[in-house]
């Protein structure tokens, strides 16, 4: 009882000092403190080999931590596995099914293992899950004839066999074409809208960055940072770039300074707009960009262009690690 109350009730996933040292001595996960709020879409990001999958295996009770603890939906793992895991849908390190069974038979097989699943609705739920991932037409085909994308979809269907409070999706877009990737993003958004928490891991930042409300970034077994995505990308001050007529550059700079923007400078580079234009840059700070444009227009400055350059997660990551996202492979 005490152990369950250690965990914050509003966290769907929590770990404290979670560590995994392999027998080889390699530390795959090092003192991880994850905090995934309920209802979040948590992007669990990091290069291949950074410890994401090992973390997920420990969360799900497949591997035992060397040190530290983990809670899913407020209950300690792996002790509460029987109670908690029926509410958790998972895709771990790629899909895996019996090759000679059909997609539908494979789902029935997993459903047969679930003590909380009603056998009477098994077929209906399997077909609904297949339909949801667009596999209805291939339901009776043996799994070994599935394409990589279809296999991935069947993995997602298995995670959706039952209503879930938490989905742990490890690299769900692996092997999918751009259209399939978009569908997965859409599915993740749909699940989150339905009230589920989604922990989605990826080594491709750009693929899931857009759907995440929260982000945790792993590198070499450690969690470099985590938090709300918007806050993370705003950590680095967004830059504003204003393009005006060349003759109005000074007036525009005056307006920007008047708004309290720091670091106002004239960009000396040659501009695509030609000699007639000038480009000013400034740190945007907390000022909303629309206020800047309104002020410029109000001051009679012809606004040729206005850009806000927010750093992407990738830039944040590169800055934190000093390495590219795919380098640590």
């Amino acid at each position: 009882m005490t152990s369950t109350h250690d965990a914050d009730g509003d966290l769907a996933v929590r770990t404290a000092g979670l560590t995994k040292r392999f027998r080889s001595g390699q530390v795959a996960v090092d003192g991880l403190d994850l905090a995934v709020p309920r209802g979040a879409v948590y992007g669990f990001l990091g290069p291949n080999g950074s410890g994401k999958t090992t973390t997920i295996r420990m969360l799900l009770g497949l591997a035992h931590p060397t040190a530290g603890r983990a809670w899913l939906l407020g209950s300690p793992m792996p002790d509460a596995a029987a109670r908690v895991l029926p509410r958790v849908g998972a895709l771990v390190e790629g899909p895996a099914f019996h090759p000679y069974l059909s997609g539908r038979a494979n789902l029935a097989r997993l459903d047969a293992g679930d003590a909380t699943a009603d056998p009477r609705t098994s077929r209906r739920r399997a077909d609904a899950a297949l339909d949801r991932v667009g596999l209805s037409a291939a339901a009776t085909k043996p799994y070994r004839q599935y394409s990589l994308g279809m296999k991935q979809r069947l993995g997602l269907a298995a995670a959706l066999l039952q209503p879930r409070d938490l989905l742990v999706l490890d690299e769900p877009t692996n092997g999918l074409d751009p259209q399939g990737t978009r569908e997965v993003r859409h599915l993740v958004r749909e699940l989150a809208d339905g009230g589920a928490t989604v922990l989605v891991s990826s080594h491709l930042l750009a693929e899931i960055e857009q759907v995440c409300t929260h982000v945790g970034i792993m590198s070499r077994g450690r969690l470099l940072l985590q938090g709300e995505r918007a806050a993370l990308t705003e950590r680095e001050a967004a830059r504003l770039a204003v393009t005006t007529r060349a003759g109005q550059a000074d007036a525009a700079a005056e307006v920007l300074r008047g708004l309290g923007l720091a670091d106002v400078a004239r960009d000396g580079r040659a501009l695509p707009g030609g000699a007639g234009t000038a480009r000013l840059t400034a740190a945007l700070g907390p000022t909303p960009p629309e206020k800047v444009s309104a002020a410029l227009v109000h001051a009679g400055v012809d606004l040729v262009g206005l850009e806000v350059d927010r750093p992407s997660l990738e830039q944040v990551f590169v800055e934190l690690t000093g390495e590219g996202f795919d380098v640590a492979r």
Partner: peptide, 18 residues
């Protein structure tokens, strides 16, 4: 070897039962 073991265990099927 098929990888289906991990999916059975997260269903979850208790290990002793399996």
């Amino acid at each position: 070897s098929a990888g289906t073991l991990r999916y059975l265990l997260v269903v979850p099927v208790p290990r002793t039962r399996l």
